[in-house]
Design a protein around this nucleic acid. Structure first.
Length: 212
DNA sequence: CGCTTTTGACCAGCGC
DNA sequence: GCGCTGGTCAAAAGCG
C-alpha cells in the first residue's frame, strides 16, 4: 500500500541536542570534514560540487528510517560536510516528495523491522575519501551488503566494547562518491577511549592547579 | 595467538 | 506462498 503514514515533522533543534549523548567525540564533527582515521596521510582535497545535497537524490539511503520522528524525533541527520548542525529534511517532507525511483524502496523500509528499533539514530554526511571515520571508538565490522540503487555496498559495524551495543552503518553515495553517510544507532555506555587518553593528563593537571 | 575483516548463508518483514 | 531486500551470523582468511 502507498499509504505511508506521514510522520510528524522534526522540529528544529539547537545544535547541542544533535550531538549524541555520551559521545564527546562528536564535538569534532561540525567542521569542514570529519576527522578520518587515515586522513593524515591522504588529505581530502575534494572540491565541493554540491554544497547542499538533497536527500531525495540518494534513494539508496534509508532517509525515512534515519529521520523517522518516532519518540519525539530523536533521529537526526546532520551534514557535517557543509552545513553542520543542519537537519537536511524531515521524513514528512520526504514522503510527500518521494519520486518514482525511491517510492517502492522507502515504503517497505518505513514500516519494516528497522523501525522496531527505537534506539536513537544519528546520521552524518561526511565529505571524505575514507569510508571509516575515526570517531574515537573501536568498531568491528560484522557485515557488508550491496544496496539497491547504489553501486557502493553498505558496511555494518558494532562497537567492540563488551558492554556496548552501539552499531553504525557506513555507506558511500553513488551519486556523489565523495560523500559518506555514517549512521549511528544507540548510545555508548562507556567513555570514548581516545578522548579519555587525551583528557586524563589534562584533568590531572587541572586538579593539581586547582589546589592552589 | 588474538583480533579483525571478508563473505556466503540465513532470517525476518514486506509487497504482490 | 514467493520473491525481494536489508540486517545479522558465523566460519574462514588475513593481519600484526
Amino acid at each position: 500500500m502507498e499509504g505511508q503514514e506521514p510522520l510528524p515533522p522534526l522540529s528544529l533543534i539547537s545544535s547541542p541536542l544533535l550531538l549524541p549523548p555520551q559521545n564527546p567525540s562528536f564535538l569534532f564533527a561540525p567542521s569542514a570534514n570529519f576527522p578520518s582515521s587515515s586522513s593524515s596521510s591522504t588529505p581530502n582535497t575534494n572540491p565541493n560540487p554540491n554544497p547542499n545535497p538533497n536527500p531525495l537524490d540518494y534513494p539508496e539511503i534509508d532517509w525515512i528510517g534515519l529521520l523517522s520522528a518516532q519518540a519525539g524525533g530523536r533521529d537526526q541527520t546532520m551534514d557535517t560536510s557543509t552545513k553542520p548542525n543542519t537537519i537536511l529534511q524531515n521524513s514528512a517532507a520526504l514522503s510527500a516528495n518521494s519520486g518514482e525511483e525511491n517510492k517502492g524502496n522507502n515504503k517497505r523500509r518505513a514500516v519494516g523491522k528497522m523501525r522496531k528499533a527505537s534506539r536513537p539514530r544519528f546520521a552524518f554526511q561526511t565529505r571524505s575519501a575514507d569510508d571509516i571515520l575515526d570517531d574515537g571508538y573501536r568498531w568491528r565490522k560484522y557485515g557488508q551488503k550491496a544496496v539497491k540503487n547504489s553501486s557502493y555496498p553498505r558496511s555494518y559495524y558494532r562497537c567492540t566494547h563488551h558492554t556496548c551495543n552501539v552499531k553504525k552503518q557506513v555507506q558511500r553515495l553513488s551519486k556523489d562518491t565523495s560523500i559518506v553517510v555514517t549512521t549511528y544507532e544507540g548510545i555508548h555506555n562507556h567513555p570514548c577511549e581516545k578522548l579519555m587518553e587525551t583528557l586524563t593528563p589534562l584533568l590531572r593537571q587541572m586538579q593539581f592547579l586547582s589546589r592552589f
